Computed example of a mutant assay.
Amino acid sequence: MTHTQFHDVIASQEQFEELRALCGNPSQRAADKVISHLDRHCREFIAKSPFLTLATADRDGRCDVSPRGDAPGFVQVLDEGRLFIPERPGNRRMDSIHNIMTNPHIGLIFFIPGLGETLRVNGRACISRDPELLERTAVNGRAPLFGIGVVVEECYMHCAKAMIRSGLWSPESWISREALPSPAQMLIDHAKLQNTNAEQVAKELNESYVNRLY
């Protein structure tokens, strides 16, 4: 079990209550900020967001977080209780889709570049092939094969502290391109690719980014 791999683990309700006493309770404002629908503020945020993270879990609770991104407004707000996320071509693993088929609970975080605050949306998801929604989310004449429909249960703004601490939107804090990890070399080592090199794999990755985005 996980707790056997770490020391001084909080594993009981009594220990959690002790931890809660140390951390304190959320303010009334933090407790009251959660709403159950997409109001005008949420709709504006989603319309201006080009990127989100999507959290799912399978029937046994094993979790997965996956990125989704496109031009701002790619996520369609259908009404105050529903949204639709078009599924663009990816690595074809379909981890999120498999999870949703067995466990509909989903969590989303929407980002807007340059804005520290994020929007969190929790709800229940399904896989939809609604022709009208697929046509509405087509790009360059190509409609997605399917998308993720979400029935909203909770929405709330998340504060900017993590963004401030990380310097995520501050170019002066970014490391140089020369010091960045090599995705190509990671792929070679993790997938145990034989008779290839990082330059070749990087070229293949870049070709897919240019020609197979939609």
Rank of each mutant, 00 (worst) to 15 (best):
T4I: 05
S36C: 12
R129D: 04
I164L: 15
Q5F: 02
P181E: 09
E17I: 04
H7G: 09
N122K: 12
T118Y: 06
T196F: 04
Q185N: 06
L54C: 14
K33D: 10
A143R: 08
E204R: 14
E132L: 12
V152D: 04
R68N: 07
S12Y: 04
F84M: 12
T53D: 11
N197R: 10
R136S: 10
T2E: 10
W174Y: 12
L108E: 01
D60R: 12
N206K: 12
V150F: 05
P89K: 12
I188E: 02
L213A: 15
P67D: 10
I85K: 01
I106A: 00
I175D: 06
Y209S: 13
T56W: 03
K48T: 11
M1P: 11
C126Y: 12
Q15R: 02
G24K: 04
R93A: 08
A55L: 08
F146W: 05
D95W: 01
A191R: 09
M1C: 07
C155L: 10
L205F: 15
Q28N: 13
G107D: 06
L205C: 10
G114N: 06
R165K: 14
G147R: 02
P181V: 04
R29E: 15
K203M: 13
Y156T: 03
A162P: 01
S66E: 08
R142M: 08
S49W: 02
Y156V: 04
C159S: 11
Q200I: 10
G116E: 07
A191I: 01
A184R: 01
F111Q: 00
H37G: 00
H105K: 11
E18C: 02
L133R: 14
A138W: 01
E18F: 00
S166A: 15
P104M: 00
A125F: 03
E153T: 01
P144W: 12
E44Y: 03
I127F: 01
S27W: 10
R88C: 03
E18S: 11
L180I: 00
M1H: 05
L187K: 01
R20K: 15
L38M: 10
V75I: 11
L38K: 09
A71L: 13
I175E: 13
G116P: 02
E204K: 13
L115P: 00
E178V: 03
E178M: 05
S12V: 00
D8Q: 08
E172Y: 06
I85V: 14
L205E: 06
P171D: 10
F110L: 04
V151E: 07
Q28L: 14
I148M: 05
